[in-house]
Simulated scan of single mutants.
Amino acid sequence: MASPPRNTRRALCTFITIFLLLAGLAVLIVWLIYRPHKPQFTVLGAAIYDLNTTSPPFISTSMQFTLVTRNPNRRVSIMYDKLTAYVSYRNQAITSSLALPPLYHATKSTVTLSPVLGGAGVPVSVEATNGLVMDEAYGVVALSVVLLGRLRWKAGVIYTGRYGVYVKCDVWVGLKKGIVGQVPLLGSPQCKVDI
């Protein structure tokens, strides 16, 4: 069998090259139009109902944080799956993880979350317990609200795969022994969001 003429091979290679360049350009344009931006999280309020450090190495707490999340995307919505929240002190969890319901975040929208975190005693190190007692006596406690989960982006009828999301909100709260309920936030910084 004879090989195809040289001009036919050259035309086929040119066609494949042009097709791949146009397909790559189309993918780049779609990505630039629908490129998703990370959601933004901010802590707006905090309430501490219980903080019991009298049974080392266990701490039992009951806290509520009001978090506001904003979807900055104009064309892409966000769907959160398997989102959990907990509070940490000096990089140690002082509340057990709480599973939050699935969340749909429409384009250019804001959603408020106010989970109550805590309950039964959580084991922590002696250093963390002592540090928490000292900070409470001083009147200022540095806490971190952490959200873990998975999210999907939705652009029109297109869904992406699931991506892991890690949100860490470092907050300073004014806390005096014996005061229960709403506590002052000393600043309201943006949270760090990793996807």
Rank of each mutant, 00 (worst) to 15 (best):
83 L>I: 02
84 T>W: 05
84 T>Y: 07
85 A>C: 06
85 A>Y: 00
85 A>T: 01
86 Y>V: 11
86 Y>D: 08
88 S>P: 07
89 Y>W: 04
90 R>E: 07
90 R>V: 03
92 Q>Y: 07
93 A>K: 08
94 I>R: 03
95 T>V: 10
95 T>L: 05
97 S>M: 09
97 S>Q: 11
98 L>P: 04
101 P>D: 10
103 L>S: 02
105 H>P: 04
105 H>D: 05
106 A>F: 08
106 A>I: 09
106 A>W: 03
109 S>R: 01
110 T>F: 02
111 V>R: 07
111 V>D: 01
112 T>M: 13
112 T>C: 10
113 L>P: 02
114 S>M: 09
115 P>E: 03
115 P>R: 00
116 V>S: 12
116 V>W: 01
117 L>E: 00
117 L>Y: 03
117 L>M: 02
118 G>Y: 01
118 G>K: 00
119 G>S: 09
120 A>E: 09
121 G>A: 07
125 S>T: 14
125 S>I: 07
126 V>P: 05
126 V>S: 15
127 E>R: 10
127 E>W: 08
129 T>Q: 03
129 T>I: 11
129 T>N: 09
129 T>R: 03
130 N>W: 08
132 L>Q: 06
132 L>E: 03
132 L>D: 04
132 L>W: 01
133 V>D: 03
133 V>E: 04
135 D>Y: 03
135 D>N: 09
135 D>I: 07
137 A>P: 05
137 A>L: 15
137 A>C: 11
137 A>V: 13
138 Y>I: 13
139 G>L: 06
139 G>W: 04
140 V>T: 14
140 V>W: 09
141 V>P: 06
143 L>W: 04
144 S>V: 04
144 S>I: 05
145 V>I: 15
146 V>C: 09
146 V>L: 10
146 V>G: 00
146 V>M: 09
148 L>W: 04
149 G>C: 06
150 R>E: 15
153 W>K: 04
154 K>A: 07
155 A>E: 06
156 G>R: 07
156 G>M: 08
157 V>N: 13
158 I>L: 15
159 Y>V: 10
159 Y>I: 10
159 Y>A: 13
159 Y>D: 12
160 T>D: 05
160 T>V: 07
161 G>M: 10
162 R>H: 14
163 Y>H: 14
164 G>F: 11
164 G>Y: 07
